[in-house]
Nucleic acid binder design. Structure first.
Lengths: 224, 224
DNA sequence: TAGATTGTTAATCGATTAACAATC
DNA sequence: TAGATTGTTAATCGATTAACAATC
């Protein structure tokens, strides 16, 4: 029997993937300034990275190769990165939990730049259910799975208190959701084919806090 | 001459540091349930990590060692991690930019759990300057450096549009700030001893989006 | 004691960096 | 052509994992 092996393109590391959005912002700002081409070395200078690393990152996602003595076309590179990241394809998402965070997410219009479109929100609050908020319908949480499946939605955004997060997560997964953006400070258990991306300010605060500890109170200094 | 070499404690990797907040949340939830001790293996199961990795992480920050056949004291481990991350020491911060994001940050009370205390906010809007918002004074952006220096503040939070972010950053650094939490989607240039921690939802969206691309539209599949 | 669990040293794996050849 | 810049292959570095000894 002939097997169908999905080819997932050049593999780039998670770290490289995480650098892509920063490159993208930078390239957009260059484009605004009317700059046509950019070299890996100038980009590296800008970000404090090594030239080689940037060149590898660009090479990994760029469809059109860079030209010696010229660099990369800003426009082509923007296109390559956006295509690579899938920002060109609109992906529908549903949001669960319309508290202050959830409402802010619902209100935010910049998601379209990432190909994300929130089509419906869910909450338990009877006062909210059945209303429209920022042009999006708010539905009962009981309908999460059904709606996700019916609308063929593959992204779920969890903005509920942590006590409810796993339950909501299970409902999303039952509805066929394959990627979950989790704002609740709790680890979610999901099947292997579902990705959970945690948005957690605690991680940032930990890094900031640790740096400050080290800078301001170097512990246990020793005299030599 | 006798040199004073600061000893910065056991070095743990950035990745390990980033796992600490998740452990902390987990340990707090165990404590709420009245659980006294926890093993590295159970923790690993919970998070889908390897037992060895968790044990190394715990060992790196724990002051009291784990006991064979018992594991680690939940309480002692919470203490160790919070101390390690510096969440026990209150650190004062100033926030620049009181738009909807800035206001939300000002309003959020959970920062005290991370030892963070926002003491003042800054904005350019004359309507805001001189007022109190969520019990915090809003001052003119012209006073950023002075205030930071006078109050001995070492953390700055940037919640202004990206066009103004580098200028604000420079003012913070001039005022002696050593750690910057940047919500503007732009790379900030700072001296070597200043840390910039970027909070950028674009990174999360990139990871989610890429996963979905791979899962739903595996490109260029080939028949064998 | 036996077994669960810890801590330590060595091996593996993956990402970054270095060296160098290719090309506009 | 010379030089800037690219792409590729090999070396290094650091994080994770494995193997195993120690201990309650």
């Amino acid at each position: 029997m002939i097997k169908h092996i999905p080819y997932t393109g050049p593999v780039i590391s998670l770290q490289a993937l995480q650098r892509m959005p920063a490159y993208l912002y930078y390239l957009h700002s260059l484009q605004e300034e009317g700059v046509d081409s950019i070299s890996a070395s100038k980009t590296a200078d800008h970000f404090g990275l090594t030239e080689i690393q940037v060149r590898k990152d660009f090479a990994a996602v760029s469809t059109t190769p860079g030209k010696p003595k010229y660099g990369f076309s800003v426009e082509a590179l923007i296109n390559s990165i956006e295509t690579y990241l899938g920002f060109c394809n609109t992906k529908e998402a549903i949001l669960v939990g319309v508290g202050s965070l959830g409402e802010a997410l619902l209100h935010y219009e910049g998601f379209t730049h990432f190909g994300l479109n929130i089509v419906a929100a869910f909450d338990n609050d009877p006062a909210l259910i059945g209303t429209m908020l920022h042009q999006k319908p708010v539905l009962s949480s009981a309908k999460i799975s059904d709606t996700a499946r019916r609308m063929n939605v593959h992204i779920g955004i969890i903005a509920v208190p942590r006590q409810q997060a796993q339950l909501v997560c299970d409902q999303l997964v039952a509805g066929g959701v394959k990627a979950i953006w989790n704002f609740a400070p709790i680890h979610l258990s999901v099947p292997d084919d579902v990705l959970v991306q945690n948005e957690n300010m605690a991680v940032s605060l930990a890094i900031l806090s640790k740096h400050l500890e080290e800078t301001l109170n170097p512990t246990g200094g020793e005299k030599l």
